[in-house]
Design a protein around this nucleic acid. Structure first.
Lengths: 204, 204, 204, 204
DNA sequence: GATGAATGAGGATTCATTCAT
DNA sequence: CATGAATGAATCCTCATTCAT
């Protein structure tokens, strides 16, 4: 009896590990060949499981991509919230988000490639995405900006929603460019200069 | 004798028209169903030509997408250069580019959808793209920013290349967001607020 | 425990049987409609498998034809070598080969049709073929003729290579003619008269 | 009036020339790429006519191949009959046929390739062929052999039909082998050794 | 007669998904 | 739970043939 739960959790652990192995394999293969260029069989081979096993953990091929997106976003958001909690002022929070965004993507090339390139896949997929996790992420940034406006750290006359787009767009472009290039620099090193421009503006 | 050249140019004109009809059909159908979700047969039906006719004008299905990208970029760049030429100061030039970017994409929903979503398709495709036309476009923005720096209109301590990313990223995100939403506003109306943030910065 | 290997070999056996079923189906359909006139779907239907199953066993449609050729040639050559081994003199060996050649083709109309007609398909294909299995077969005949020359059973002044062509040409033409006709006679019955002419010549 | 027929015959001549140009182009391209690997467009390009023009001279693509076969066979047969007429004895006639066969094919590599390889294409095509021109050709050889038997030059106990197969088979194999090899020898040089074996036999 | 743009039927092949073992 | 052989729908592309000019 006492070892039954242990056995179960061993099993659970093994399942979780296998599930993660499949996800990691998917990220790796998709980063290399693109989502369309990737077959389920390739993912299975990379994860060292049978083709059919994929379907014990995921509904279908699309579900793989969606899961990659959602779990990564969950991690992003959780990390974002955690980092924010520890920062004294709204502006510090915003800086931390910018930093985290580029640090996270910059620490995993394959994941970044999938995120920046493959997830832009289809308008339908994105429409679905943009209504959930991504919106949450945007909300965090928007709230932080609004707080900073109230705190007098960001100009009050700006429309927060527009500001979010500008900030996110800048980060997104930094990441995409880094993925498409030789990556002869660290993505996170772009955080400071990007934030600098965003904060002080281009104007002389 | 005198109508021989006319006949020839008639044929030429017809071919050009048919080619454009196919491209327009492709943009329309791809915007609706995504590139992968679009069959060549659907494009042919929309263009009211036979399936095989597509292949008289384009090498394959991919070539359709590439052509849409390249011809649109060519137009973008040509328009950009023209607009720039008529502006007095570098900063005015930059404002015009921002304006043109959002106005152009905002004037053709389908084209915008293809541009903002479908063309991000595969890292391989993008790698190919980003080394030619897109780079040209970036160059124009970069030169303009550098000129503005020399003219004292943009702060000289900024790295121009980083600034380009921030500007382009902001515009790109504005466009993508517009495509993914109900489009209950005009994209070009975002030009002024975006430029405002970019120029004056977020900082209070 | 003891049935684990049995299970495995059951699977193996099934796969081998299915593979052979596909090959037999291909021979039958190709003999009837020609290689070009045969669709993969027809072969699959005849073999009672799904279209896609063909591709689990063969690389593509061409591979079917190549496999038919190679496996038949392997059987030919193995049988030829076996028959030869049991014959006392080189001339007996040669007679046995002639016999076997016509008996083998004459025992399977469809296979003979594919062999004599469809495999002559393309010069490229034949070039590839003639450099391997067919050459081996020719070698056997050539060696046998050379041995017979040394044994004084075949005239020593003949060029063995030329003699092989004459012998093979005669057999090949006998087979082709039989395939193209009503086959109102047994092909193997042509072995004796053919050998008679080849051995004694036309000359009075 | 007197030049009207001249004009007509000029036109006629041009048509005949163009027809021949198409046939020569077809032989050349088919020899290189095989019949299936050859498109009508390629033949047209090689003949420097429009695609549609082919159909003013031939019913369809198959008709091209059939025409090549039939016209060549007509020439073969005519030449054969002519050569025969000038030979004193049946055996001389037979030798001349053997000579002519290999000389003709040996003088035009492309034609030989088409004849030896591509015309074996489909059993249906061959069935059609073998009932007309080819049969005529066989008849000539058969008659000659029979005459030689009556004249005591070829052994009377042989079945003439079988002998024809042996003779034709040997010639055919010589030609096919020559086509498939580097052709580093003249095909016609094989006539004498081949005839030697056929006449005197292999036996010591 | 000649052209060559247009047609559209036809088929090989892929691969996500299932399910018997 | 895991396997991987089998399925068969789905689609890009080719190319012989036609016909308006």
């Amino acid at each position: 009896m006492s070892n039954s739960p242990t056995k179960v959790s061993n099993r659970e652990r093994k399942k979780i590990e296998k599930r993660q192995r499949i996800l990691d394999a998917a990220i790796k293969v998709i980063a290399k060949n693109g989502f369309q260029g990737t077959t389920v069989a390739e993912v299975a081979a990379e994860a060292q499981v049978a083709d059919g096993t994929i379907y014990l953990y995921f509904q279908n091929k699309d579900d793989l991509l969606i899961t990659i997106f959602e779990e990564t976003m969950d991690r992003f958001i959780a990390q974002g919230l955690e980092v924010i909690a520890n920062m004294p002022t709204p502006l510090d929070k915003l800086k931390s988000i910018v930093d985290l965004h580029l640090t996270s993507l910059g620490s995993n090339e394959d994941l970044a490639a999938v995120f920046q390139i493959e997830l832009r896949h289809s308008i339908h997929t994105m429409k679905q995405f943009s209504q959930t996790k991504l919106r949450d992420y945007f909300q965090i940034i928007e709230s932080t900006i609004e707080d900073a406006q109230k705190a007098g750290q960001i100009r009050a006359d700006l429309d927060a929603w527009t500001a979010v787009k500008v900030v996110f767009g800048a980060l997104d472009e930094m990441a995409t460019n880094w993925v498409l290039r030789k990556k002869d620099y660290a993505l996170k090193d772009m955080a400071q200069p990007t934030m600098h421009i965003l904060f002080h503006g281009l104007g002389a």
